[in-house]
Simulated assay, not measured.
Amino acid sequence: MTSENTNTCEDSACSKESCLSALLPVRDALEVLNGRWKLPILIALSDRPKRFKEISRDLDGITDKMLSKELKDLEINKLVIRTVYDTFPPTVEYRRTLHSQSLGNVIMALKDWGTLHRKEIIGK
């Protein structure tokens, strides 16, 4: 690989323009996934579609208002699909999109880094 393909902002050969071009996609990703609950919601939906209350039970400490807001944000960013079934009362189900499944490696990398960081900071 050439240094053009592997430049990071830690490289001494990194120009301001290449650092900015590397940071923009990272900033975009962080903007979409920001907050305490978006990744835990996606993880909760990783095994199967779930109804609102099922997700709420999986995420100890989240309020219904916050869960509703975060699900709407994830839906806007095409990471979650909301399906309303014609039943009485209406049944609403949430599932991850194919696009959100591409986050699998990112989530695993964050898990691995979090494990290392925990050991570094608190020794566990």
Rank of each mutant, 00 (worst) to 15 (best):
I122L: 06
N105I: 11
I121P: 05
K111F: 10
K69V: 14
K65W: 13
T2C: 13
K38W: 06
V106F: 14
M1H: 10
C14R: 02
D58S: 12
R118M: 10
T63P: 00
G61M: 05
K119D: 13
K50P: 04
C19W: 05
P40F: 04
I81Q: 10
M1E: 08
T87H: 14
N7C: 12
D60R: 09
K119S: 12
S12I: 12
L20W: 13
D11H: 09
P49Y: 05
D58L: 10
R51L: 15
A44H: 13
G123W: 08
F88R: 08
I43A: 06
K111Y: 07
E120C: 13
L67P: 01
L74I: 01
A29I: 00
R48Q: 15
E70I: 09
V80R: 00
T83H: 01
A109V: 07
M108D: 06
K72T: 12
D86V: 15
T97Q: 11
N5M: 15
L98A: 14
T115Y: 09
K50I: 02
M66P: 00
L103N: 03
L39C: 01
S102F: 08
R48V: 01
N7W: 03
W37Q: 01
L74R: 00
R36H: 14
R57E: 04
T87I: 13
A109K: 11
